Amino acid sequence: MKNYLQLLLLMASMGMYAQYIGKCGLDNDPALTDEEAAFLNEYFNKSDRKGFDFTGKKVLILGGSAGSRLCGKEDYFKSIKDRIEVTTLPIASDPYPLTEEEKRLSGGYDAVLTFWTKVPMTRDKIKRVVRRVAEGIWEVPGVA
Rank of each mutant, 00 (worst) to 15 (best):
P30T: 05
Y109L: 00
V130C: 01
E139P: 06
P95C: 12
T55M: 14
G51L: 03
T99S: 11
V119L: 06
L105Q: 03
D75Q: 10
E36D: 09
Y96M: 03
L60H: 06
S47N: 14
A134D: 08
R123Y: 12
L10A: 08
Y43H: 02
V129D: 07
E35S: 13
N41T: 08
G15F: 07
W138K: 00
L70A: 13
K23Y: 14
Y76T: 15
V130N: 04
G56Y: 09
K78Y: 10
L32P: 09
K46Y: 11
D124N: 10
V112C: 00
G25W: 05
T117K: 06
K2S: 09
P95M: 10
L70E: 03
W116R: 08
D94L: 06
T99H: 01
A12Y: 15
E101M: 10
A66P: 05
P120N: 07
E102D: 13
V59P: 07
F54I: 01
K103D: 06
E101T: 13
T55N: 14
K118A: 09
T99Q: 02
A111I: 11
P95R: 00
E36Y: 10
L26N: 14
K81E: 15
A31L: 11
V133N: 01
E139T: 15
G136T: 05
G22L: 02
L62G: 11
K127H: 06
L7I: 10
G108W: 13
D53P: 06
E135L: 05
E74K: 13
V143G: 04
V129P: 03
N3S: 12
L5V: 10
D34E: 13
S68W: 09
I84R: 11
R123G: 09
L32E: 07
L9T: 10
A18R: 13
K81D: 15
N45C: 14
V59I: 15
A31D: 09
V86M: 11
V59A: 09
F44W: 12
K2I: 07
A144C: 04
I84G: 09
S79E: 10
G72S: 05
Q6N: 03
I80M: 15
K118F: 04
S79I: 00
A18N: 14
F54Q: 01
F77P: 13
N28H: 13
L7T: 01
E102A: 04
K50M: 06
K103N: 00
G108N: 11
A18L: 12
L7E: 02
V133P: 02
R123F: 07
G15M: 04
D94H: 11
Y76L: 10
S79N: 08
V130S: 03
P30H: 01
K125T: 11
W116N: 08
F115P: 04
N45S: 07
R128F: 03
Y76C: 09
R104G: 02
S79C: 12
L113A: 02
L5D: 02
S68V: 04
A66N: 01
I21K: 03
Y20S: 06
E74N: 07
N3Y: 01
Q6T: 06
P97K: 00
G108A: 06
L40K: 01
K78F: 08
A144Q: 03
D27T: 15
G72H: 02
Y20K: 00
T122H: 05
Y17G: 08
L40T: 13
A37V: 08
D94K: 12
N45A: 02
T33K: 00
G51Q: 12
L26V: 10
S65A: 12
